[in-house]
């Protein structure tokens, strides 16, 4: 069987001021085609003002097997959050 076109991941900024967000994926033979395919697939209802596409095989991802080592150490650092600190109600603008 002949090779299929590579897979690209599509990220869309829905309006300016917001970040790009993963919308889905498309197959395309080249980058230009990936961009237009993404436009024709994922912005048919005015969903976007900007598109990023990236070859799926170029994405570096964390491994779910290591998720405890990666993410759980952040769990007990509650002092990073503002609610950790007790300030009397009378004090304003803080």
């Amino acid at each position: 069987m002949k090779q299929e076109w590579p897979l690209y991941e599509v990220f869309i900024r829905s309006r300016s001021g917001l970040s790009h967000r993963h919308a889905g994926s498309v197959h395309a033979a080249d980058d230009e085609m990936a961009l237009t395919n993404a436009r024709d697939t994922y912005t048919r209802r005015k969903e976007g003002v900007s598109i990023w596409v990236v070859r799926s095989d170029k994405i570096v991802a964390s491994d779910p097997e290591e998720s405890s080592a990666f993410f759980e150490p952040a769990e007990d650092k509650i002092y990073r959050h503002p609610t950790f600190y007790e300030i009397p109600d009378e004090v304003e603008n803080l």
Partner: peptide
């Protein structure tokens, strides 16, 4: 569509 998909693939390889 086979020849079309193949043409696009080969074109992409050439450009790369």
């Amino acid at each position: 569509g086979a020849w079309v998909r193949e043409a696009a693939r080969v074109y992409a390889e050439k450009k790369a």
